[in-house]
Design a protein around this nucleic acid. Sequence first.
DNA 1: ACGAGCGCCTGTCGGC
DNA 2: TGCCGACAGGCGCTCG
Length: 277
Amino acid sequence: MPELPEVETIRRTLLGEKAGAPSIRGLTINGAIIFWERTLDIPSLEEFGLRIVGQQVKDIGRRGKYMLVRLTDDTLIIHLRMSGDLWVEGQDLSLGQHYRMVLNFDNGSRLVFNDARKFGRVWLVSDPEQVLGKLGPEPFDPALNEQNFYESLRSRRRQLKPLLMDQTFIAGVGNIYADEALYRARLHPLQLSSRVTQGDAARLLESIRAVLQEGIERHGASIDWIYRGGDFQNYFGVYRRTGEPCWNCGTPIARITVGQRGTHFCPTCQKGNDGTA
DNA sequence: ACGAGCGCCTGTCGGC
DNA sequence: TGCCGACAGGCGCTCG
């Protein structure tokens, strides 16, 4: 899926912050269609339609990888998972093959939730905490600092890569940015969190923030057939660079599988202190 | 408290 | 050309 930078890019586009893109803020929903039933988590199909029609888009927020469309009475929460995308277009256009939800607005435009793999989910709730309650800290929250990040790492005994991708540990980091953050911090993906030093923790937090920030500035990464317009994929340090030379030392980038996910790292620059490298 | 495996889905790509 | 497995930006579940 899109990770935090891609979700943030889409959020800004839906608010009209990208040149030529119309904002949906202030528009009123006068029709809603779900094309794939499992896309809707809660409430029921019947209640969803009855409840959402007539509500106005007040603002769009984000929490981790979740898009939060704040309406008059409820919040429409959308998770894009692996292949989801959101955009605005005219109601006169024909429907695409992978449209899973469409919201029609009173000005003749519509919001499209497109999702080839059907993993995406939407929730319509009065209290967003019902869905977001278990999420860990937002990466850019100033309340997250070197000290409590260090303590949070030490309090668990997890491999760093799966831990970074655990949304209850920190929200918004996925497979690409976990690999990139560990590379930047010079930490091995299998190193145990219980054994990091204060310096390791400080570098890792700084690295997470730096790669997410760069991802946002480059409007996210666009890979495979899911094109979203960003160009961060041209600046990857390790992700999908298997066999290519490390920018720092020239060693071929290695690929291993961790938690069923492709994991890329430099065997020379990223040494673990737990015997894994 | 962990990690591993699997299910959910469709599409693309490389090898034969 | 066609088929077939590997792989893909995520996450919830079960099982040791």
